[in-house]
């Protein structure tokens, strides 16, 4: 059976690793360190860990000040509080002055589960990707999360890293995986259709491709771990190779990965396309798997979406 690990756990471990490598790294949290997994960094490097209490605006502003004084500041909380609640702080104190703040946001999407819609952030990719100077990573597994965290620390400027609460299958081989910001990873070649996915939907995309292979449909799977800057080259190549694209994200269909892919394809190489994601609605309480089923984010939904775009494909 495939090994599973939550991306937030990989985040916590990567921060500890980074703390040992780079003394300029500091970590801030807003009273959620045991959930965001920044707690371990705080235990190991207490002088470089700042709990800001339940005060997210000040969390972001303080991170900005630390960055202005030369630190690499990782600011963590849940995605819902780390984006929408503090959009103006991120916009004016971090993105506009291009400060070295890395927002490590966990508990994104429906799979927060039982806490319900107030905590299920489905618009964060949209909010973060429209900010100039912002890089947006949505890692698919623990290996990609670690790589994204290490890469973020090397980059100059703000980065948003979107992570989840639940355990997800490990897809990449840690020893051989080469993470390049802005470069999508082809996980499976194919000629009939492409699924472009991010986050927890990458493993679902691979399963859907397996299922479709059994029906004689050959699906390319692109792991789009960087939403911004989007790998337009890889995207257009996938559209050229297959002539039909499905996007898959645990996010609103509006403005996220699906939106970014649609914008890029329309301008460069339009092909029949379908966006799989939450269809412009809030979530609700429930078990993560039950929510994925109710809101149309399962392997079966991806299979159906591919079959639907194939119908519209220019023969």
């Amino acid at each position: 059976m495939t090994k599973k690990i939550a991306t937030r756990d990989a985040y916590g471990a990567a921060l500890v690793e980074l703390g040992g490598k780079n003394p300029a790294v500091v970590v801030l949290d807003a009273d959620l360190s045991k959930s965001t997994k920044t707690y371990d960094f705080g235990q190991k490097y207490p002088r470089r860990f700042f709990n800001m209490g339940i005060a997210e605006q000040n969390l972001m502003g303080t991170a900005a000040g630390l960055a202005a004084a030369g630190k690499i500041a990782f600011a963590s909380t849940f995605a819902v509080f780390g984006t929408g609640r503090v959009y103006d702080q991120i916009r004016n104190s971090i993105a506009y002055p291009q400060l070295n703040v890395k927002i490590g946001a966990t508990h994104a999407g429906l799979t927060v589960g039982e806490d319900g819609a107030s905590h299920q952030m489905l618009e964060d990719i949209a909010l973060m990707r429209c900010l100039p100077n912002m890089t947006v990573f949505v890692p698919a597994d623990g290996v990609e999360t670690r790589a994204a965290v290490l890469a973020a620390a090397e980059m100059d400027g703000p980065v948003y890293i979107r992570m989840g609460r639940s355990e997800v299958p490990v897809l990449h081989n840690e020893a051989s995986f080469n993470f390049v910001p802005g470069k999508a990873v082809i996980l499976r070649e194919g000629k009939d259709a492409a699924i472009v996915a991010c986050g927890i939907m990458v493993s679902a995309a691979l399963e859907a491709a397996e299922t479709l292979a059994g029906q004689g449909v050959d699906v390319l799977v692109l792991d789009m771990h960087t939403i911004k800057p989007l790998d337009v080259e890889a995207l257009v190549a996938a559209a050229l190779a297959t002539g039909a694209v499905v996007t898959a994200e645990e996010h609103s269909i509006n403005g996220g990965l699906g939106g970014a892919v649609a914008e890029a394809l329309v301008e460069n190489y339009p092909v029949p396309m379908r966006r799989v994601g939450v269809r412009d609605t809030f979530g609700e309480s429930g078990k993560p798997q039950a929510l994925l089923e109710k809101y149309g984010l399962t392997v079966g939904d991806l299979v159906s979406a591919v079959q639907e775009v194939l119908q519209r494909k220019v023969k």
Binding site: V26, F50, T62, A64, L66, A68, A69, G70, K71, Y96
Partner: peptide, 25 residues
């Protein structure tokens, strides 16, 4: 200019961050 400002209420947070960095260093 040490900090980009204009949206009110944000400067003290940034000042605190600079002060924390100073203490750390």
């Amino acid at each position: 200019v040490e900090m980009t400002t204009g949206s009110l209420g944000q400067g003290l947070s940034a000042a605190n961050g600079m002060a924390l960095a100073g203490k750390l260093d």
